[in-house]
Amino acid sequence: MTSFPRLFAAAALLAGLCSPASQASPPSDPRWEQLGVEQQQVLAPLAGEWNRYSAEKKQHLLDIVPRYRALPAEQKQRVQQNLKAWSELTPQQRHEIRGNWDKLQKLPPDQRQQVIQRLRQQNASSAQ
């Protein structure tokens, strides 16, 4: 099973990738079948759940695609692994991670950086 620090780091990575991007707007609530080939390739780990997501969540996830193109291969692989790990979480686990993310965002910037650094260190040591 994937460790909590690793999943938390995955959530942080995905949040950074999901910041707003300027691009032509696809349908506001596209079904999986309406996505382009590249969008489906990038978001493939979420295919089974895609049509159940809200329009807002879909748009948020689609914002990953343009940034994904520019990532080095290693980071692309990590994004795919993180999307897969997220799709395999239970609703309760997702709720807990979102709650922790909200708490993290409320911390002062210097304290937030310390927590992020500690999580990265924990993640690095658990990966060895």
Rank of each mutant, 00 (worst) to 15 (best):
K57Y: 11
N51P: 02
E74M: 09
E88V: 05
Q59N: 01
A24F: 05
Q34C: 03
L104D: 03
G16E: 13
Y53Q: 12
Q122D: 02
S125Q: 13
E88N: 00
A73N: 04
G16I: 12
Q39T: 00
S54C: 10
K76S: 11
W50C: 00
L71V: 08
L13P: 04
Q114A: 15
W32C: 04
K84M: 12
A15D: 15
S25W: 13
S126H: 14
P5Q: 10
C18T: 07
V65H: 03
V37P: 11
V65Q: 00
Q122Y: 02
I64P: 01
R118S: 09
Q23K: 13
S19V: 15
R6C: 07
V37W: 15
R118M: 13
A44D: 01
A127D: 10
L14I: 06
T90I: 02
K57M: 14
P72C: 03
L46N: 06
P45I: 06
Y68V: 08
F4I: 15
Q39Y: 03
Q105M: 00
H95A: 05
L14E: 00
V42K: 01
G99V: 02
K106I: 07
V37R: 12
L62R: 00
A10P: 09
L35D: 01
P30E: 11
E56K: 08
V42D: 00
A127I: 06
Q34M: 04
R98T: 09
L107S: 07
D63F: 13
Q113T: 03
Q34N: 03
A24G: 08
F8P: 06
R31D: 14
P30L: 04
Q92A: 09
V42E: 02
D102K: 10
V79F: 04
L35C: 08
R98A: 11
G36C: 07
R69G: 12
Y53L: 15
R52P: 06
A47M: 10
A127Y: 11
N82Y: 11
H95M: 05
Q75R: 15
Q81F: 05
I116E: 11
S54I: 01
L62C: 02
